[in-house]
């Protein structure tokens, strides 16, 4: 049976071949709500979050919602893992630790991930989010994912 989950994986594998990742985000309602985009760049995945008013968490600064930055990074790590592993399952987040370094300005937020360790059952992933300058991250995060 072709389940929604395998559809997500299939779409990801198809995107990997074609280089067009728009179909993936359409499979994940929350990622679509945030407005996440992704593309391949130098054999790595780059995640983009163009600015949308609905992602604002502080109208005075204004700044992106901390939960948006967290959700964007967690989503990036999940997709990065599925992309790198060619697995047939969606990993489950065990824990997620997020350091907010700068406020998220009302402009595009970028993210890239790095798999620090991948075991049989658990993977550790580092995430970095930035805006103007990659060496000045908006937030960094690390997470553990259950793979099976």
């Amino acid at each position: 049976m072709r389940t929604a989950e395998s559809l997500l994986i299939q779409t990801l594998h198809a995107a990997k071949d074609s280089g067009d990742y728009t179909g993936i985000i359409e499979q994940i309602p929350y990622a679509q709500l945030l407005g996440v985009q992704m593309q391949e760049e130098n054999d790595n995945l780059l995640f983009l979050l163009p600015f949308h008013e609905r992602n604002v968490g502080n109208t005075k600064l204004p700044a992106l919602h901390g939960g948006v930055i967290g959700g964007f990074l967690e989503n990036a790590a999940l997709l990065h893992l599925m992309w790198a592993r060619e697995s047939n399952e969606v990993p489950r987040t065990v824990d997620f630790s997020l350091d907010y370094l700068r406020s998220g300005k009302p402009q595009t937020l970028y993210a890239q991930c790095e798999i620090t360790k991948q075991g049989k059952r658990v993977a550790n992933v580092l995430m970095t989010a930035w805006q103007d300058d990659r060496s000045k991250p908006t937030a960094v995060a690390r997470a553990h994912f259950l793979l099976s």
Binding site: T3, A4, E5, L7, L8, Q27, I28, P29, Y30, A31, L33, L34, G67, V68, G70, G71, F72, E74, N75, V90, T93, F96
Partner: peptide, 13 residues
Amino acid sequence: LVGNPKTGVLHGG
């Protein structure tokens, strides 16, 4: 707000 369309579970975000 769903993160996994198969299960309908809310996204961690």
